[in-house]
Amino acid sequence: MKIEIWSDVICPFCYIGKRNFEAALEQFDHKEQIEVVWKSFLLDPSISEQSSESYHQYLTKRKNMPLEQVNAMLANVTQMAKQSGLDYHLDQSIIVNSQKAHQLIQFSKTKKLGDKAEELLFLAFFTDVKNIADTESLVKIGLELGLDEIELKSIFDDQKYKYEITQDIQEAQNIGISGVPFFLFDRKYAVSGAQPSQVFLETLNTSFTKWRASNPKTPIQVIQGSNCSLEDGCN
């Protein structure tokens, strides 16, 4: 069963949602039959790649909120992250455009490394306070994923991965997604936001039951003949 997740790697609730979803998946009896597909979402495409604004400054300006209120809000988010086992340093994070980070994710997906790419980019931004718009930093993350360095250096100029991002965003708009994280289970059930793991587990159970009813296991009819096996050799 396919679960599609729209997220942005500069969204603090997306990393928390990822962790809570993973906790639910660990408790799910049929996790080996779940396919997770990450989808790109840009919360603010207007942010510069050379931004020097802190997370606090950005939200103060974007939401037109007093700095004290923003500080309190981000302190709550940091505590929420801690409860999910994450270590946020939002007081040090510099807001940058996440387009290139998503290009790395799209490329990683072609190597079946989309989930690991999401994890390392979240970690880089929220915990290690790295500049995820910097090509050199992104190449290092790609190398950590085990990707080829020559290929990595070419993906940021490749229109293919920019197109994939645009397609994901257009798909989100068509579905009616206006915020992330957004988890879509078998295109029939959805969870919006960084919900507790129990909510994800309940949705997993409900959606999988419906999916299994429409996709029953079919026993394979085998015509036996002479063969070789590890246990019995050839007969």
Results as ranks from 00 to 15, higher is better:
residue 73 M to K: 00
residue 202 E to K: 08
residue 81 A to P: 03
residue 182 F to G: 10
residue 24 A to H: 06
residue 54 S to G: 14
residue 67 L to Q: 06
residue 193 G to M: 12
residue 33 Q to Y: 08
residue 60 T to L: 10
residue 115 D to V: 05
residue 80 M to N: 13
residue 158 D to S: 09
residue 154 S to T: 15
residue 191 V to N: 04
residue 217 K to C: 00
residue 62 R to N: 07
residue 197 S to M: 06
residue 82 K to M: 08
residue 18 K to N: 10
residue 45 P to T: 08
residue 40 S to N: 01
residue 9 V to N: 03
residue 154 S to C: 10
residue 144 E to K: 10
residue 104 L to Y: 07
residue 22 E to R: 05
residue 45 P to A: 08
residue 89 H to N: 12
residue 98 S to R: 11
residue 37 V to Y: 00
residue 117 A to V: 00
residue 197 S to R: 01
residue 225 G to S: 13
residue 127 T to Y: 03
residue 33 Q to K: 07
residue 94 I to F: 07
residue 172 A to Y: 10
residue 35 E to P: 06
residue 180 V to Y: 04
residue 50 Q to M: 13
residue 73 M to G: 02
residue 21 F to S: 02
residue 71 N to S: 14
residue 53 E to T: 10
residue 35 E to R: 05
residue 131 N to E: 05
residue 91 D to F: 14
residue 210 K to A: 14
residue 115 D to F: 05
residue 21 F to P: 04
residue 189 Y to N: 00
residue 96 V to I: 15
residue 231 E to S: 12
residue 85 G to D: 05
residue 121 L to C: 02
residue 198 Q to K: 14
residue 14 C to Y: 02
residue 132 I to Y: 00
residue 125 F to W: 08
residue 194 A to P: 11
residue 164 E to Q: 05
residue 178 S to V: 14
residue 64 N to A: 11
residue 94 I to S: 02
residue 154 S to R: 11
residue 67 L to E: 11
residue 64 N to T: 00
residue 177 I to L: 12
residue 10 I to K: 03
residue 213 A to T: 10
residue 197 S to A: 14
residue 101 A to N: 10
residue 188 K to R: 09
residue 177 I to D: 07
residue 85 G to P: 07
residue 36 V to E: 05
